[in-house]
């Protein structure tokens, strides 16, 4: 009986500690802004999704990198998320005439394994990406908003390319939030 009580106590302490750690972990934002928006973007302006370049370490194996198809999907997600939030007047890809351009660098990437996520969970087979995304004002050729965005998929029901969707959502969400702060100040 005493042994059972001890086990319950161990479990309770463990769960409380785990809850604290998970809370700390959960409070961690999936992105960090390195350049805040200093002036509102022009609402009627056009925005184009530009190059997403490879800045993974040089010895990163070629077959483990995202493919051109993954990057095309990522650009589609970015365009879709920016359009959904009406951040600019028009949204396109690869338009050299656009007023603003979103460019990015992939600095870390793990493709992960859906099968491992299904079989084990607990982080095994997770897909992860860190993308440095920038919004450039073409008129001045200056970065007006930038940050590093993490995407992570740990659940078996999600596909690995969901990491790009998460990054796109967070980028558009934070850009919209910062734009709205200027509107409120007015």
């Amino acid at each position: 009986m005493r042994g059972n009580n001890m086990q319950v106590q161990h479990l309770s302490v463990g769960l409380v500690l785990l809850a604290i750690v998970m809370l700390a972990f959960g409070c961690t934002k999936p992105y960090r802004i390195t350049h805040d928006l200093e002036a509102p973007t022009r609402a009627a302006a056009s925005c184009s999704i530009g190059d997403i370049i490879d800045e993974l370490p040089l010895d990163f194996e070629e077959e483990k990198k995202p493919t051109a198809e993954d990057i095309a999907k990522f650009k589609d997600y970015l365009q879709e998320e920016l359009s959904k939030r009406d951040i600019f007047g028009s949204h396109s890809q690869g338009d050299p005439e656009a007023d603003y351009e979103v460019t990015g660098s992939i600095i870390s990437y793990e493709k992960g394994s859906g099968w491992l996520r299904f079989l084990f969970g607990f982080g095994a087979g997770s897909a992860r990406v860190t993308v440095s995304l920038r919004l450039i004002d073409r008129s001045s050729n200056q970065t007006v908003f930038a940050g590093n965005f993490n995407g992570i998929v740990t659940h078996w029901a999600e596909l690995g390319d969901e990491v790009f969707s998460q990054v796109s959502k967070n980028f558009a969400k934070e850009l919209e939030k910062q734009r709205k702060q200027f509107s409120r100040r007015k």
Binding site: D54, L58, T67
Partner: peptide, 12 residues
């Protein structure tokens, strides 16, 4: 890392 300025992703 070298400064890369263009996309170099390979198609599957």
């Amino acid at each position: 890392e070298k400064k890369r300025s263009r996309e170099t992703w390979r198609s599957k």
